[in-house]
């Protein structure tokens, strides 16, 4: 790590480096939580690193509201345009690489693991940026119906998604759940990793300086026990996405509460423990990246719409 970046995000007490207040990211802005409460994020030696917003159901409510409002602006963009916007995220993330690595190291990552995770994140963003204008071609269909009709099926965004991020990998795990949804055209409310939220919060800064329209990605920090019931019960959330390793009680809660408005619920694997990350970063991150690069994840967070039209003179 070079000196300059060390200064930028360091928690040291030097005068030219000041600690950051980590806030929610809603509608392209960084509001404080409605409750005004916070929790302390600590390093492995239990030393305070930063205060992070302790959000409540009202923050979820606000985020869902803006996500719903913003949805049209995202899903109506051309696939090419969405691809470029997602690619732009990779450009900006790449430029702030050292900041993410620094925060990960603070949270207990080895430098090697942190570097590899950030590299993998850039790779994953670029990978998914390329899918925006291809999913319809791979998964859509023209259906040869036995009548004088032209009939085709294509994927469309579902709407507002609640994403429950895994604890680790702190950034790759989140992106693995977020990116298929962005490609799909959904707008999202993410519940960030509780114990390792800093990369998620800093990712919000990447989004804020990228071309992603406000309200499409909203990131909320806090305690899962507070936030999961709220998002899974919300009648204006169309889909819940989470990591397979999410605590069984939370998973069951998502499945149960989804019945209220027949939310779709999908879990896929994006979790790697910090121990694994640190002990065998090469292997675990490569495997995780490989399993996250699954275009079927995009398919699962979309709806299939079938259109009929007569064919005649």
């Amino acid at each position: 790590m070079d000196k300059q970046t060390n200064h930028t995000a360091s928690q040291s007490n030097t005068m030219n480096s000041i600690p950051k207040t980590y806030k929610n990211y809603i509608n392209g802005e960084f509001p404080r939580t409605e409750s005004g409460r916070y929790y302390s994020v600590k390093d492995p030696s239990d030393k305070h690193i930063a205060n992070v917003g302790l959000s409540t159901r009202k923050d979820i409510r606000n985020a869902v509201q803006v996500a719903r409002k913003a949805h049209g602006a995202w899903t109506d963009k051309t696939a090419y345009n969405r691809g470029q916007i997602i690619y732009r995220i990779a450009e900006i993330l790449s430029g702030r690489r050292e900041q993410f690595i620094h925060e990960m190291v603070l949270l207990g990552y080895t430098k090697q693991a942190a570097e590899q995770e950030v590299n993998a994140c850039v790779e994953l963003i670029v990978y998914f940026a390329g899918w925006t204008d291809k999913t319809t071609q791979v998964f859509g269909s023209i259906n040869p119906v036995a009548s004088n009709h032209f009939n085709f099926s294509r994927q469309e965004s579902i709407g507002v998604v609640g994403i429950i991020c895994p604890e680790t990998p702190s950034l790759l795990g989140m992106l693995g759940l977020l990116l298929p949804n962005m490609v799909a055209g959904n707008s999202q409310v993410l519940i960030a990793s509780h114990q390792y939220p800093l990369p998620s919060c800093t990712f919000a800064e990447v989004l804020a300086t990228s071309d992603v329209p406000a309200g499409i990605v909203n990131i909320i920090t806090g305690i899962k026990t507070d936030l999961i019931p709220s998002i899974s019960q919300h009648m204006d959330v169309d889909l819940l996405v989470g990591d397979e390793s999410l605590d069984t009680n939370f998973r069951n809660m998502c499945e149960l509460e989804s019945a209220s408005n027949m939310k779709r619920v999908y879990f896929w694997k994006s979790f790697i423990s910090l121990d694994e990350l640190n002990s065998t970063p090469d292997k675990t991150i490569a495997n995780c990246l490989n399993s996250l690069k699954d275009p079927y994840h995009i398919l699962y967070v979309q709806e299939v719409k079938t259109t009929w039209h007569p064919v005649s003179e």
Binding site: N143, V145, N151, S153, D238, E303, K305, T306, H309, P310
Partner: peptide
Amino acid sequence: KSGVVWSNTYNKFDPTSPFGGYKE
């Protein structure tokens, strides 16, 4: 917001044609 859109026709079904709903 619906799984099927019938344009200039209605209530057509075919085995090759996916059918199903959005929302509830």
